[in-house]
């Protein structure tokens, strides 16, 4: 059944999509930002994939790309299609799909704020969770959380000399750190 669905999609969109059967009840397809709206509209209106289950974003910084994942579900076939789109990290723009599913608006707002991806035509308040944020979008892999915390917050009185517990123990006892814990030490 999953293979039939995949064949149907590939037949309709030809070389605009590629995909595979991921596992039981999961079909994975790869497409582009220019085709994703057509794929989702076709899946929803013709094939009956009427429920948007999930809409997520992953930062693949090594490949200089973001990956958007749209998961859609059909109550009839009980299959979930995971459509994946790669977006350039330097100029991240993707199409807005909140006219297909109303709640996609919330996902897009969060992804815009947390990853800095612009959705063309998205009408929503700019700020969602963060307030007066001027730094890099915080869910990007190169956002340095420790550095930001150091810059923004101050130590509680009495905590200025906050030490690394492991280092302090070594200094006091002269014990060697186990190999695995070295990378967790500052």
């Amino acid at each position: 059944m999953e293979q039939e669905l995949l064949d149907l999609l590939v037949e309709h969109f030809q070389d605009r999509i590629a995909g595979s059967v991921k596992s039981d009840k999961r079909v994975e397809i790869f497409t582009s930002t220019s085709a994703i709206e057509d794929v989702l509209m076709y899946a929803k209106n013709v094939l009956g994939y009427i429920h948007l289950v999930h809409f997520s974003c992953v930062d693949w910084i090594e490949e200089n790309e973001f990956e958007l994942m749209y998961a859609i579900f059909s109550p009839k076939s009980k299959i979930t299609i995971m459509s994946k789109v790669r977006v350039d990290r330097e100029n991240p723009v993707a199409p807005n799909i909140d006219y297909i599913w109303r709640h996609a608006n919330t996902f897009e707002r969060e992804i815009r704020e947390m990853f800095g991806i612009e959705f063309t035509g998205l009408i929503a308040e700019k700020e969602m969770i963060l307030e007066d944020w001027i730094e890099m979008p915080p869910m990007r892999r190169d956002f340095d959380t420790a550095e930001y915390a150091k810059k923004t917050f101050f130590d509680r009185p009495g905590r200025e000399d906050a030490q690394d517990v492991r280092e302090t123990i070594i200094k006091r006892t002269g014990e060697e750190l186990p190999e695995f814990s070295k990378k967790y030490s500052r």
Binding site: V53, H54, F55, C57, V58, D59, H103, N105, T106, F107
Partner: peptide, 19 residues
């Protein structure tokens, strides 16, 4: 690499509640 939760409240609390 990424753990992303979509809970029911994420849908019900924003667009649905507003409507």
């Amino acid at each position: 690499r990424r753990v992303h939760l979509k809970g029911p409240a994420y849908i019900h609390g924003f667009t649905l509640l507003e409507d």
